[in-house]
Computed example of a mutant assay.
Amino acid sequence: MQRQGSGGSAAIRIRAAGALLLVAHLGLVAWLMLRPLDVPWVMPANLRPGATVRADLALGWPEAVRRIGEGLGLLAPLGVLLPMAHGRLLTSPVASLARTASAGALISVGVALLQTGVPGRVVDVDTLLLNTAGVVLAHLAVVPAARAALRRRKGRRASRAVREESAVQGRTPTIPRVGITPWGDALPPSSP
């Protein structure tokens, strides 16, 4: 059974590259976020949305941009890699965004839960929100345009193949139109 939008070795290569890059990125995220930190003390867990972002903004623009950018950028590649590994070319943009955002949020929650057992790491709800926002922003910035370009390319290739096939086979013969028969002529005669 073929998946929707599949066909050709190019689609298989794109899916394989997406899956490989996805695994590599998740390995990098695990290595960055699940290493123990050697710190003398640990901040308490932040369960209030926006508290860490406000504290970062209070530090001033260069430090705030760096910290918020790290939160947005950590899982942002998932916004492109998840649809790439899934490999659907013809799909609803809203459904694709919802699937990608949900998967990004679940991965972010999974990393946060795993961090609870790592020394020096604490849960921060703002990190979850920033990670998910980064996934959504990356998806919106890249995936719709990339899918449109791939669909145009596929359409051009298909029309070129049809032209080449018709040039090889010659002109397609046409059949003259046949009128519709009245019902009286089509039904067998009835007996009295």
Rank of each mutant, 00 (worst) to 15 (best):
I12L: 14
G184E: 14
L22W: 07
V135T: 10
Q2R: 13
V94A: 02
P176G: 14
V123R: 06
R153S: 14
T172C: 10
I180N: 09
A64T: 04
G73Y: 03
V143F: 05
L129A: 10
H86K: 05
T174K: 11
L114W: 04
H139C: 02
T174R: 15
S191I: 07
N131D: 13
A45H: 10
A105G: 10
A167N: 05
V65C: 06
W41C: 03
S108I: 00
A16E: 04
I14H: 11
P119T: 07
I14C: 12
A85S: 11
T181V: 14
P93Y: 01
A149G: 03
G104S: 09
V65E: 08
L59V: 01
A167K: 05
P192W: 10
L137G: 11
W183C: 06
L47C: 06
L32V: 13
P188D: 08
A30D: 15
R15W: 05
W183M: 14
A167C: 04
A19K: 07
L78I: 01
V136E: 02
P173L: 14
L28S: 15
L114D: 03
V143N: 00
A167L: 09
R121G: 05
L128K: 09
H139S: 02
L89A: 02
R15G: 09
G110F: 04
A149R: 04
R13S: 15
M1G: 10
I12Y: 04
A45M: 14
L32F: 11
L78E: 11
P83R: 01
P77M: 09
L106I: 06
L137F: 05
L28V: 15
G155C: 02
A101M: 06
S108H: 00
P77E: 15
G104V: 09
L37S: 07
A105P: 04
V143A: 07
A103N: 05
A186Y: 12
P182L: 11
P188K: 01
L187F: 13
A17M: 09
A167S: 14
G134L: 01
V118S: 02
V53F: 03
P83L: 00
L129H: 05
S108M: 00
V178H: 11
V122K: 04
G117N: 03
L75Q: 06
K154V: 02
P119I: 05
G179I: 02
S92A: 00
P83W: 00
V80P: 00
G71Y: 04
A85V: 10
P62L: 02
L57P: 00
I68P: 05
T116Q: 15
A45K: 14
P189G: 10
A51D: 12
R99Q: 12
K154T: 11
Q169M: 12
A24M: 07
M33I: 07
E70C: 14
L187A: 13
E63G: 00
S102V: 05
